[in-house]
């Protein structure tokens, strides 16, 4: 049963992810007073990338791009198979490390700076994701996604602070303004395309697909907060994503110092305070 979940994720996530990206671009264009691209544009883009020549600076770039994709798929599949949340987070981080290594391998100044910023971003969002996992453990007494999802407890009511903190780092993960530091889907960027600058053709296509897998995984993570009721969870996911698009369109990019600071302060204030309160309450309960 759970293996089928993982298989369904592996098969469907690119389609859902691509569609979400298409809706994203369309909604963004409408917010900017434009007609915007066709809904299926992201698929055309990736299809095209696989039709293009694959230029690489070093052959190792191919390996890194593929590893990024594979580990992203593994972490998503583990997640949807109901695996251990900590292992999922580990695989998720590892996949980004491959992306960073790929960017370092190309020796170009822009991708070098992009890679450094990507690392800083990982440092910025990692605590919050772990806090989310710990919070879920505290509520459901389990690190296993299957058990968290099966629990009928409305997790969100116990973890409102953690949820808000997670939304903040979600902006980083979705590569949206104000935290689109290391690479961006928009054209203009202080460091050209950052980490993806030196990837071309099919490698870039793989990175794009990995990003779709990643987005579906992250939306799945939001689902966990609302797993007590599927309609509420779906509504929450849609609202959260639209909110992210709105934020993307109403903020300018910030500096990496600010990103690090705000991600940590938010994680510390909202996440840890939330956990402390929860610990106190549940401690009182249990004793």
């Amino acid at each position: 049963m759970l293996v089928t979940h993982a298989l369904i994720y592996l098969l469907l996530a690119p389609f859902i992810g691509g569609l979400v990206a298409g809706i994203d671009r369309k909604v963004t264009a409408r917010m900017q007073g434009r007609a915007g691209p066709p809904l299926l544009q992201p698929f055309y883009d990736v299809g095209k990338l696989f039709e293009k020549e694959n230029l690489v600076v070093t052959a190792s770039q191919n390996v890194y791009a593929l590893s990024y994709l594979v580990f992203m798929m593994v972490s998503g599949a583990l997640f949807f198979a109901g695996g251990d949340l900590l292992l999922v987070i580990f695989a998720f981080t590892l996949s980004h490390i491959f992306l960073v290594l790929g960017a370092y391998a190309s020796c170009s100044p822009y991708s070098f700076i992009g890679a450094e910023r990507e690392l800083l971003q990982i440092i910025a969002y990692e605590p919050m994701i772990i806090i989310s996992a710990v919070g879920m453990y505290m509520v459901t007494r389990s690190f296993f996604v299957a058990e968290i999802a099966a629990s009928s407890v409305p997790i969100i009511l116990y973890l409102p602070g953690v949820f808000l903190g997670f939304l903040t780092v979600l902006t980083i993960k979705l590569r949206k303004s104000p935290f689109d530091l290391s690479t961006s889907h928009h054209a203009h960027q202080e460091i050209v395309k950052g980490v993806t600058t030196e990837f071309t053709g099919s490698n870039l296509g793989k990175i794009e697909i990995a990003h779709w897998y990643e987005n579906v995984f992250l939306l799945g993570f939001i689902f966990l907060f609302f797993s007590f009721s599927i309609p509420v969870a779906v509504a929450a996911i849609i609202i959260v994503y639209l909110l992210e698009i709105l934020v993307d369109n109403t903020f300018s990019r910030v500096t990496w110092q600010f990103t690090l600071r705000s991600a940590w302060i938010v994680a510390g204030m909202l996440g840890l305070v939330n956990l402390a309160v929860l610990y106190y309450l549940s401690g009182g309960f249990l004793v």
Binding site: G33, R34, Q41, A187, V192, E198
Partner: peptide, 23 residues
Amino acid sequence: CLTPLYDVERFGIVNCGNPKHAD
């Protein structure tokens, strides 16, 4: 051409600013 009046993104045209991604 990129801006609302002409909006070439309708045709999927994106100004990517990076030769390695360009067509």
